[in-house]
Design a protein around this nucleic acid. Sequence first.
DNA 1: GTTTTTGATGCATAATAGGTATCATGAAAA
DNA 2: TTTTCATGATACCTATTATGCATCAAAAAC
Lengths: 296, 296
Amino acid sequence: MKIGLRHIRYFLVLADDLNFRRASEHLHISQPALTRTIQHLEAELKVLLFERSQNFVRLTDAGRAFQEGGRRVLNGMEATIDLTRRVSIGEAGALRVGYTDFAIAGALPELLKQFHQKHPGITVRPHHGVTATQLEELQDDKLDIGFITGPVRHPGFQSRVVQNDRPICIVPEGHHLAMRRSVTLADLAEEDFVHGPAEAWAHFYDYLFPLCRRAGFQPRIVQEAFNSVGILGLVSCGMGITILTESIYDFATGGLVPLPISDISEVMVTEAVWLSDNLRLPTQQFVDFLAQQDIG
Amino acid sequence: MKIGLRHIRYFLVLADDLNFRRASEHLHISQPALTRTIQHLEAELKVLLFERSQNFVRLTDAGRAFQEGGRRVLNGMEATIDLTRRVSIGEAGALRVGYTDFAIAGALPELLKQFHQKHPGITVRPHHGVTATQLEELQDDKLDIGFITGPVRHPGFQSRVVQNDRPICIVPEGHHLAMRRSVTLADLAEEDFVHGPAEAWAHFYDYLFPLCRRAGFQPRIVQEAFNSVGILGLVSCGMGITILTESIYDFATGGLVPLPISDISEVMVTEAVWLSDNLRLPTQQFVDFLAQQDIG
DNA sequence: GTTTTTGATGCATAATAGGTATCATGAAAA
DNA sequence: TTTTCATGATACCTATTATGCATCAAAAAC
């Protein structure tokens, strides 16, 4: 015979009442049934849980230990059932969200905050990652939603623009361009650039390089950093200049000068992307939520 | 129908194997039995836990939630059974120990340390209290063992001496007795005394007063503090002198002078006491442990 | 002394779980 | 294509387990 939740339920009521007859009434079963169940429980545990006589029933020390533990088990069971039901109807769950530096510096925080207000049961698990990584993770079902750079038009993916950034040029204080009110791309042809590694930042380069090519040059990348904070750090050290977005610049600590680029009208888009066949309820809810948002 | 631990056990194995036939083999039951148990579980939860087809079985989000919760419930059940068994054989449990200032300043710490080494499963819960309080708590089953001052010879109680203290006189620095190497009781007849309140310190007074009477005076208590630290504090402020033990003196911070009392040979005993009819295993174990100790 | 109340027990019944045989369906093999 | 194989689901019967009723033995209440 095995101990089941039934034994625990009966035991706990008896441990409260300390009277077989009353406990059996509370449980809506007969008194012999309760006696038997407790006997079986004690036999299976090979432990006496109650001292009984015709006058009194009281818990042994072991009984008190079992009482505490039993309560925890029953509460845990109830909580599990409740959570499972709520997950199934979308009231609870987890949403794995990937984000780039551009997204976290821009619209993402406010979006997640609003989503949390609307769906307080959904736990958002954010994972930082560049665009390429996120697209892989989406396909490997490591991510539900990715916030990535640049338009993605792959079969199987759906997306929605959530953010438009105007790129700006960022130079260190004291740089020969630092006194300018604005620059053109052509002004930057001879400059050293600091940026991220080519593979990881492919989507950003896809946006920037054509613009530079149109201006008649290819940016000379002389230093690579692993994220935009690192890039800004290298720029402020005077290793070169960079082109990023205004929101990223706002994250920097100082020693940097932002310059508008007058001859770029193209914006750099940040998109939310997800797999069309992602059927998870939290994902659906986030997609629906996104559809209701007005994005400038 | 009610959800039981059986459902969870079966569910967890299936969630690992994701194959009904293999899971049923691991569980040593037939495949139809497993199929129906899972069906019953899902019906009771009103939640789909697995997506099934002839090709694959996989967990739904709700299934994953139930998996986590179910694991916790099962672990909790196992832990509870284990703890209960250990409590019943005395490998685990709690021992409520009362102690006086004299005990905690003397032999108690070492005793508890040794007991813990011998019975690592027993959690010692110490409660500070004067002798009178502890005796009440023992009788109300609020305490298992009391460490109290002075011999107790009440019916129902058993005891064992654990500590003998020679009382010393403690005076503040600069006191007119502070230069003496030792004092006699008679030297103290005209002094102001600081001590604890009469009711709570009854047992201490029972020891001290007869000695003073023999020396021909009754100590004049001019200040009361609630514990020995407070008493020593008042003494160091010059409010009076006191008679305590050397171990208590060692707890003081300074500004005090200890003086042996040459004409007291009677020691002040600290005893462990317990009710004869306390049947709790941890208590028995502590009593047995005490019996094995050599007490000076 | 009688009645009432307590927990325990014997026995029959009801509810639940399990096993065997079998089906329907889709994938892989021939 | 047809055949074979593996999958999960279902039908039907059996074994196990839980329950209720009637009753007992012992102690307390009256």
